[in-house]
Design a protein around this nucleic acid. Structure first.
Length: 416
RNA sequence: GGAGAGUUGCCGGAGUGGUUGAACGGGACGGUCUCGAAAACCGUUGUGGAUUUACGUCUACCCAGGGUUCGAAUCCCUGACUCUCCGCCA
């Protein structure tokens, strides 16, 4: 959520952000509601002031045994009038609050302006594409040869878009999760947490998935709970409605969770095999930092994620997302795209984002600064990493001509 | 799922209709005292909104949302959560 005062004073910038992010928001409506709300608030406050003042006189007058019937009658009228104003104010406030939730965050100044992912800016790459003296197979062929995946049975018991891992495949995935968690905990100083993957509406609004993406989320109607699309939701909401002491931040959390995405309308879009699933596993990093530190933290987190890929010897490139590809809540996002030689594509395995105070305003996460003043924290998160595409890249990068796989040394202790 | 108890400020805890943003105690912060510290004493100590150049003023908030009333932390209704006991259960 943006600060309404900021919106009033920087209307142009907000309009540009909405346009560049391909969002459809009626900003005029927001500004009108804001004005109307303030007008009603003023009316209510000044009427209430009169009412309170008169009301305080009543007990004294009564003690002096004076007749209060006339003043009471006047008060009745005043009170009724103000109640009407209040109910109007409540209606306008609700509309205003909702409208505020539909305004996206403003992209940082060094985010390239562009329509979609084709405008993402290439920053740099690490390693080289592996060279094979045979035609590399894609991960589905390799999985078949080694009996690692079973999509048919997953679909049988669930529905399309779900994947099953079998034998060494299941072990590999579990190994990766543990490997990455240990890596971030031991080498990068994160604290592991594990919180519900079924969360309420408020939490989903807090991190910005709602109201925009309701159709892309799995929802338990009976309880109005949502399956998280990422551990970001439960991890960032850890501190919702709390005030942190200056000494308690920065906070660095890492959390593993399954992630659920309906991906409504994305069928046929590079969905083969492990590329795009309704359910997948992911290790997620989240940071809470002071506002002046968030861009340094963003770079650190990008490195944290990169080191996983480096330690596994996988070639990848780093992209600075263009405004049109940036998520609703993000101010700046780096994507790490790992190379998959058999699929012959770069695959996104990590998004690392700085939300500045956008999520903190929604979820009400604040801290006391050195001067004891309350400030909104800056929140960040980054995948570290998502397993399915990492599995694709590992299988395809480390394949032999026979179809067997030689996993990197670092992973071997986890594969026993 | 059944029965009961509760939810007040940083914490403990009072407050059952009127000047209560909230007694009292603790903590924290500032000051006096001291070579320094402790003790003692004095003072300060919430958040949002509106308005103001500013000092300030007004308003809202005692789990949330409604209601009664001239007036609600206090009465009524609905909901959430916590605790205790019983049932069920990995």
């Amino acid at each position: 959520m943006l600060n309404i005062k900021f919106i009033r004073e920087n209307e142009k910038m907000v309009r540009a952000a909405i346009l560049n992010k391909n969002e459809k928001v009626d900003l005029d409506n927001v500004l009108n509601l804001d004005q109307e709300k303030r007008k009603l608030q003023f009316e209510y406050d000044s009427n209430k002031a009169v009412q309170n003042k008169l009301s305080k006189q009543i007990p004294t007058l009564k003690k002096e045994k004076k007749d209060v019937s006339e003043i009471m009658n006047n008060m009745k009228e005043l009170s009724l009038k103000n109640k009407n104003i209040l109910s109007e104010l409540n209606i306008v406030s609700k509309k205003f609050n909702y409208a505020m939730l539909t305004i996206p965050n403003i992209p940082s100044t060094d985010v390239p302006i562009g329509r979609d992912e084709s405008d993402n800016e290439f920053k740099y790459e690490w390693g080289k594409k592996p060279v094979f003296d045979f035609v590399p197979k894609d991960h589905l062929e390799l999985a078949k040869i080694n009996s690692l995946l079973d999509q048919q049975r997953a679909t049988k018991m669930s529905s399309s878009g779900f994947m099953g891992y079998y034998d060494k495949g299941a072990m590999l995935e579990r190994a990766l999760i543990n490997y990455m968690l240990d890596f971030h905990i031991q080498k990068h100083g994160y604290t592991e947490i594990s919180f519900p993957i079924l969360v309420n509406r408020k939490a989903m609004i807090g991190t910005g998935q709602l109201p925009k993406l309701e159709n892309d989320m799995y929802r338990i109607e009976q309880d109005d709970l949502f399956l998280v699309p990422t551990a970001e939701v439960s991890t960032t909401n850890f501190y919702a409605e709390e005030i942190l002491a200056s000494k308690d931040i920065p906070v660095k959390f890492v959390s593993y969770s399954p992630c659920f995405r309906r991906e409504a309308g994305s069928y046929g879009k590079e969905t083969k095999g492990l590329q795009r699933l309704h359910q997948f596993n992911k290790v997620e990093m989240v940071r809470f930092v002071k506002k002046e530190d968030s861009y340094i933290a963003l770079d650190e987190m990008k490195n944290d994620a990169e080191e996983i890929l480096q330690s596994l010897g996988l070639h990848y490139r780093v992209m600075n997302l263009a405004t049109g590809d940036l998520s609703f809540a993000s101010a700046k996002t780096y994507d790490l795209e790992v190379w998959a030689p058999g699929t012959n594509r770069y695959l996104e395995v990590s998004s690392i984002s700085n939300f500045e105070d956008f999520q903190a305003r929604r979820a009400l996460i604040r801290y006391r600064n050195e001067n004891d003043k309350l400030e909104f924290v800056h929140t960040l998160n980054g995948s570290g990493l998502a397993t399915p595409r990492l599995v694709i890249s590992l299988l395809e990068s480390y394949q032999n001509e026979s179809g067997s796989i030689d996993f990197p040394e670092n992973l071997k202790p986890y594969l026993k």
